[in-house]
Design a protein around this nucleic acid. Structure first.
Lengths: 356, 356
DNA sequence: AACAAAAACCGAAACGTTTCGGATTGGAGG
DNA sequence: CCTCCAATCCGAAACGTTTCGGTTTTTGTT
């Protein structure tokens, strides 16, 4: 049905190899180039990438395995990555593994069978066993957001320790001492780092660390709702909360909202990611934002580099920085020593509400 | 390197065709079946889908073209669709066309060259020209969310007219008469339908329609911010706003927030999609939600049906229904005739704030 | 004009499957 | 034990490319 290279060859009177060479950027006599181009136009020929893939062992396809497409951080990264890859002729196959190790393994196997040229993974598993087979084919792997202990590959990371430290420092500077943290699972790289940042900030401010103030949830709204609730129930002295990803930030707001706890009068809050969400809240939320565009760009380009220039350099780790976007969700406490419940000062700060 | 069917053949002493037949579910003598399975295990053979694809003209790959992956409605649908498709052995190639007709056309061409077996498209273009070539290969196309005028294919739609009507009816029932609508682009199917629903509700309530109260924005946060601002600037009598997708709902909240307009005392609001966002706001938002899971499920299954059972039935249109999720963002006006600015009644409703 | 070197061209084989039509086998019925 | 039919098996050809090694043509030099 569709025209093949043979049709082009016979129509132009040239050989198969010549056409192939032309298609792959080889040199062809001017006169022949014209003939070929005419034939291609006439028959509207398009090279069959599948056949080409069979010969070359390249599918021009990249597999992307992520925990949740439904997670705005992931979605944003993928959007930009896909854009870059497609412009360079690579298709992006998405696999959402629902934050499940087993599904993640299956997804990678699936991509292996599909013979993708490379895999970009924001891993759920912390070791990387699921990537072993793929790696043994010497096909490139780029890991984003989290580190893998047993796989040696490029990784694009965020300085999460610094991110958490910045957030907690803001709270400390405003006089908060009992700061709750809604964190991700204890065994996930980003959560560990963020916790370290939290602790470092407190430590530097000489504030004793109370491990009970850090709840480990699961980076989802549902899970974090339970986490926030238990934290509030068990530690009434908390004057500020720091939620360490977007979904948990939403969860924090939901719980405070449902309990009628006023921000910032009764509770100060710092969230994570999603500028628009922060702006849409009343009062606007102070958040830490991650450089999703840069992550996407770095991930896509290191993948392309490995793929197209057969880059053999040893794997690199790149760290990117977060930013603070200030809102009005942090209340300045009178003095650093005050651990009083915000309700005490309610009246004088109450006007903020109507002014806004 | 990797084992091929030939290796299996020679190792078992069977013929190529027999192995192939076994792999494709054909009958094989018990004794041979065991031999083959042993060989496959030993060599850990995996069929080369690329080679198979060359012969069969099927890639077991579905292309998905959407306006914005970064749009929660899209992301949610894709998550579920990808899940279903992958379970059936189909890979999903995502193409985000950034709500740009030209990029959409390029994306479809790209997928055509990649020889995907089918395309699922939430189209930007309203005619469907971009799909003509693909359609002429008699490969299945499923359109979601929007209708195409010149392509005859399955479509999974939402009853948008009903959705808007339900929203506006709630406002009317609460005594609102001057209701602003933040709508999508005038030439997009969903926006047209939602506008019709808006008008129908007003019409049935015998409320005169003021076309100036409907602003056509572009379904993005940024665009809608401008839209909401102009609406507020030019029509101070508006007592309620209805935002017709999630991004524009966020935009509405941002503007009201920045202007210090209180909800629902000074402005009632009904939004769209994203239950969690609605719950996280204070007060909680009343929204219309679309059945993203059902859309995904229907889209994936009709695609699979066409693909695997060579379904020749004429294209079907399916309509799904939306739901209302009630929040506290709609204020009950004293009487239906009152078009007074909410500020008048501020004091008596003010307490809601502190009670909550 | 002759020659060498460089550039362009070429067909056949190969990539790993499926499929076609025919050959072989096993087992039931006589 | 023979016959026959269905079930199973088989090799070769084909899918549309790329690549290898060798041949032809062009170009530049003298």
């Amino acid at each position: 049905m569709a025209a093949t290279i043979k049709d082009i060859a016979s129509r132009t009177g040239l050989g198969l190899a010549t056409i192939s060479s032309y298609l792959n950027g080889g040199n062809v006599r001017e006169k022949n180039r014209e003939k070929i181009e005419a034939a291609i136009r006439d028959l509207n020929f398009e090279v069959n990438e599948v056949a080409r893939g069979l010969k070359t062992n390249r599918t021009h396809t990249i597999g992307v395995v992520i925990p949740e497409l439904n997670n705005i951080f992931c979605a944003q990264i993928i959007t930009d990555m896909e854009d870059i890859l497609r412009k360079r002729g690579y298709a992006t196959i998405i696999c959402d593994c629902r934050t499940d190790r087993e599904l993640e393994r299956e997804a990678v196997d699936f991509l292996y069978r599909k013979r993708v040229d490379g895999i970009i993974n924001m891993p759920v598993d912390t070791t990387g066993v699921h990537l072993k087979q793929f790696a043994s084919d010497r096909k490139p792997i780029v890991v984003i957001d989290r580190k893998l202990s047993e796989i040696d590959c490029d990784s694009i990371l965020v300085d999460n320790r610094d991110a958490a430290k910045k957030a907690v420092n803001i709270l400390i500077k405003n006089g908060h001492r009992r700061i709750g943290m809604i964190n991700g699972p204890e065994d996930i790289y980003t959560a560990i780092e963020r916790c370290l940042g939290y602790e470092a900030a407190l430590h530097e401010a000489k504030i004793p660390i109370d491990p009970a103030l850090v709840v480990n949830s699961d980076y989802t709204i549902k899970g974090a709702v339970a986490g926030v609730e238990s934290l509030l129930d068990e530690h009434s002295g908390v004057t500020a909360l720091f939620a360490a990803n977007y979904e948990m930030t939403v969860a924090t707001m939901i719980v405070l909202n449902e309990r009628g706890i006023r921000i910032p009068q009764e509770m100060s809050v710092i969230g994570f990611d999603n500028r628009e969400f922060a702006r849409a809240l009343h009062p606007t939320l102070t958040i830490i934002t991650q450089p999703t565009e840069a992550i996407a760009e770095q991930a896509a380009h290191t993948m392309l580099e490995r793929l197209e220039h057969g880059d053999q350099a040893p794997p690199r780790e790149r760290y990117l920085l977060t930013e603070v976007m200030e809102g009005k969700s942090v209340r300045k406490l009178r003095n650093a020593a005050s651990e009083a419940n915000g309700r005490d000062l309610e009246k004088e700060e109450g006007k903020m509400h109507s002014i806004l």
